[in-house]
Design a protein around this nucleic acid. Structure first.
Lengths: 232, 232
DNA sequence: ATAATTCCTTTTGTACTACATATTGATCGG
DNA sequence: CCGATCAATATGTAGTACAAAAGGAATTAT
């Protein structure tokens, strides 16, 4: 199905820039360049590849966007360490993604949320718990719609942060808009979602007294309305 | 820390292509383009932005790489649905990522693995179980090193597939090389890792008789050696 | 002699032109 | 009325030219 497309399309529609991009990738890998190493100049690459400098620049522009290379005016280009999530960020717009992908991401976030218990228990500190309690305390007062979302983000965001895993935290943050978007859509079609039986407050209590297993169970209950909506 | 960098760097080092890329993104969002809509021609964009067509093409080249736009020879460019993971794929190379990021991804995969139980129980079929049993049966014979990795991939890969979530599955597959890479590194420095008490065979049994909660516990035990290696 | 300044060289960034190529749509012929 | 050929058009590629910045070399001053 899709495999055929991936085999045939590149042959027919591959442009020079595409090929040069791929060649450069291969070149960097084969030469075992490490971050900081200098790359040949644009003109040299163009000559070596037998294309115009224009094409080379289009390919380099892509690698530059991904953070794979850094270029400075006279010093030439150097290999850099790309920010993996930086590239994702650019594409993760609910408005341009397909419905299936959005649904997949929605589920992915549930999976992530369910799996973070062990990391949290590995690294949580009393200070973290205290902050969570502050967040929960502020929730009690304001239950209006705009604030509820804010508190959801504050609470769950703090949980990600407690994992001590920066990539994980940023990843979750990026997924948030998609989550909200799908949620809004679901609510519009299926009516208001009820809230889970286990509250944020309960989860914090579990963090203080229970173990990772308990926390996972609590989180499952907390997210139950979302899970119930999933189609088998 | 990094926030400052993100605010200051763009001002100082932003090239025209960077700005045009950002402008185009904003433009697409503001005009609420939907996939299939036609974009203005390159020359028109260049004129409107006050830059050369060259710069516009560098920016478009980036969007094209991300799959955000499709272009055909005369028909112009049309907005497309980007493949979110496609962009990740290009950057997820263990050799060029930093050590911290690699460690983060290693942990991320453990998190994902721990969180997939509910999706599996929502969607598993008898056929899936049968396939898993076949995979496990083949494991028994060959325990040599190259085969073990293959079976690991086959087994866990099948689990992802059972979630019915294509994005999730591809994501996991992409994370695999990083996982292996970090694992190899750990083994080299800390010696061979022992294997978890719960085997693949046990997990399949749980899938047949137990519930999602049991499966999560089993998976935790199965991955215990990895979790034990994590630093608090 | 050492340090600071100035100038020159080099490489990227941008602009412009020209033309090839493919696709669309229209015109022309059967 | 349908099919084929041909022209128009937008992207793809090449090539030239020059501006700007950054590093290094040479020169001057203390």
């Amino acid at each position: 199905m899709n495999d055929l497309k991936k085999d045939i399309q590149p042959v027919s529609t591959a442009t020079m820039a595409d090929m040069v991009e791929s060649r450069l990738r291969e070149y960097l890998k084969r030469k075992s360049f490490v971050p900081g190493d200098a790359l040949p100049k644009e003109q040299e690459l163009a000559d070596a590849l037998g294309v115009s400098r224009n094409v080379v620049r289009e390919a380099l522009s892509r690698l530059r966007m991904l953070g794979m290379i850094d270029t400075r005016k006279k010093r030439g280009m150097i290999l850099a360490q790309p920010d993996i999530l930086g590239s994702l960020e650019r594409v993760l717009d609910p408005l341009i993604l397909g419905k299936n992908t959005l649904q997949d991401i929605f589920e992915l976030r549930l999976v992530l949320e369910m799996g973070l218990a062990d990391l949290i228990y590995l690294r949580k500190t009393p200070a973290d718990i205290a902050q969570l309690e502050t967040i929960v305390a502020q929730e009690v007062n304001k239950q209006q719609k705009p604030f509820r979302v804010e508190h959801e983000i504050a609470f769950h965001g703090k949980l990600y942060q407690m994992t001590g895993n920066d990539t994980y935290m940023r990843f979750q943050k990026m997924l948030l808009p998609v989550f909200e978007y799908v949620l809004d859509y679901e609510i519009k079609t299926n009516g208001q979602a009820e809230v889970g039986k286990v509250t944020h407050h309960d989860l914090v209590e579990t963090l203080k007294t229970g173990n990772a297993e308990d926390f996972r169970k609590g989180m499952k209950e907390h997210l139950k309305p979302h899970f119930d909506r999933l189609k088998a």
